[in-house]
Structures are given as structure tokens and as C-alpha cells.
């Protein structure tokens, strides 16, 4: 069901570190770094995605994008293109 190529896969593969996109639903990890891109890293940080924080992927939307995560005790959904910027260590 790949109607449109997902930009995020490329971003994720470029980096040596796994990103939020590489986590399975139910998996948790610690954020290591957030790649800067178009000022979006500041918005991610404001929503609580800062390095050192624990994050859990809750589920993936039926069409494969976006994904739902739990961070700082609340639920947030973001597209793979942004999730790919968030590098984690499992």
C-alpha cells in the first residue's frame, strides 16, 4: 500500500543511529538527538521530544503513516518524515 514514496525512509536510512521510524509498536527507546531540518526540531523539542527523554511508539496509523507516540505522559502523533529526524537508542 505504498501509494506515495515516503521521504522519511530515506532520512532514516542515512543516519547510522536508528530513528523513531525503526521502532515497532509497543517498543520504547531513549532519544539521543534530533536532526535539525527546517526549524522543525524546535517544534519537536517544545512538544517534549528532547534528547535524554524516553519515548514509546504506541501504534502506526492504518495507512502506514503517521505514527502515535507517548512522550512525557501524553500521546502525540507525527508523520514518518518528522519521526525520522528523532534518533534513538533502544
Amino acid at each position: 500500500m505504498k501509494l506515495f514514496p515516503l521521504k522519511s525512509n530515506r532520512t532514516a536510512r542515512d543516519a547510522s543511529q536508528p530513528s523513531l521510524c525503526d521502532l515497532e509498536p509497543g517498543e520504547s527507546a531513549r532519544i539521543v538527538a534530533v536532526t535539525s531540518g527546517n526549524g522543525i526540531e524546535q517544534r519537536l523539542a517544545e512538544m517534549g521530544l528532547t534528547s535524554g527523554e524516553n519515548v514509546e511508539v504506541v501504534r502506526i496509523a492504518p495507512l502506514g503513516d503517521p505514527i502515535e507516540i507517548r512522550i512525557r505522559g501524553y500521546h502525540l502523533s507525527l508523520r514518518r518524515s518528522e519521526a525520522g529526524l528523532v534518533h534513538v537508542s533502544k
Binding site: 527546517n38 522543525i40 517544534r43 519537536l44 512538544m47 503517521p66 502515535e68 501524553y74 500521546h75 502525540l76 502523533s77 507525527l78 508523520r79 518524515s81 518528522e82
Partner: peptide, 11 residues
Amino acid sequence: GATPALLLELP
């Protein structure tokens, strides 16, 4: 402009 990011809270 750049596609705005979807940062959607699921309350």
C-alpha cells in the same frame, strides 16, 4: 512552502 509538520496531540 514546506509541508507543515503534523504534530497532533491525541488527547
